[in-house]
Simulated scan of single mutants.
Amino acid sequence: VAMAAVAASNTATKAIAASQTALNAIAGSTTALDALYAKKSRLTGASTAKSGKFIILEISANSAFDTSQYGYATLSDGSKPNWQDYKSKYAYFKQFKKIATYIKNDTEGDDWIDYFPCG
């Protein structure tokens, strides 16, 4: 219940995005991740992109990673880690525990990225 309230609060999600301690705690809690997933957004459409602050929750199974041609995410530290092995629910965020500042979908129209906007 408390995490659902946090997920619904713009102020709280901004604070989460600014705190590595909070990001680590969320990555370690399926309950917290489930609360965020209940409020998720989905990036769809071939080569669509979005800038902001996001927690990546899931990447479609057939989504190809390639920073020059296909889909990718830029994390808050500027890295663009390969998502090939981290497409299952919560796997990418649990592995990297960072806010994404940019996400780009694969070139296939049926691929998607589920994310939670942070403020």
Rank of each mutant, 00 (worst) to 15 (best):
A2H: 12
A2G: 10
M3S: 05
A4S: 15
A4M: 13
A4T: 15
A5V: 12
V6E: 04
A7R: 04
A8N: 15
S9T: 09
T11K: 08
T11L: 07
A12E: 14
T13E: 04
T13N: 13
K14V: 13
A15Q: 13
A17F: 04
A18G: 14
A18K: 14
S19Q: 06
A22P: 08
L23N: 05
A27E: 01
A27S: 09
A27G: 08
G28V: 12
T31N: 12
A32T: 01
A32S: 14
A32Y: 02
D34R: 09
D34H: 05
D34M: 03
L36A: 10
Y37F: 12
A38V: 06
K39Q: 15
K40D: 07
S41V: 13
L43N: 10
T44M: 11
G45H: 05
A46F: 03
S47F: 12
S47G: 14
T48V: 01
K50Y: 05
K53C: 03
K53N: 06
F54G: 08
I55A: 12
I55F: 05
L57M: 05
L57S: 02
E58D: 10
E58G: 07
I59Q: 05
I59T: 06
I59L: 07
S60I: 00
S60P: 02
S60E: 03
A61F: 00
N62D: 03
N62K: 00
A64L: 15
A64N: 14
F65N: 14
T67N: 10
T67L: 01
S68M: 08
Q69A: 15
Y70R: 12
G71D: 04
Y72E: 07
T74N: 02
L75Y: 07
L75M: 15
S76K: 07
S76H: 08
D77N: 15
P81W: 02
P81Q: 09
P81S: 01
N82M: 11
W83P: 00
D85I: 01
Y86Q: 12
K87R: 15
K87V: 09
K87A: 02
K89E: 08
Y90C: 03
A91Q: 00
A91V: 02
Y92R: 03
Q95M: 06
I99M: 07
A100D: 08
T101G: 04
T101F: 02
Y102P: 00
I103T: 03
I103C: 06
K104G: 07
K104W: 04
K104P: 07
D106E: 01
T107I: 10
E108T: 08
G109T: 12
D111L: 00
D111E: 15
W112P: 01
I113M: 13
I113L: 06
I113Y: 00
I113Q: 08
I113A: 05
G119T: 05
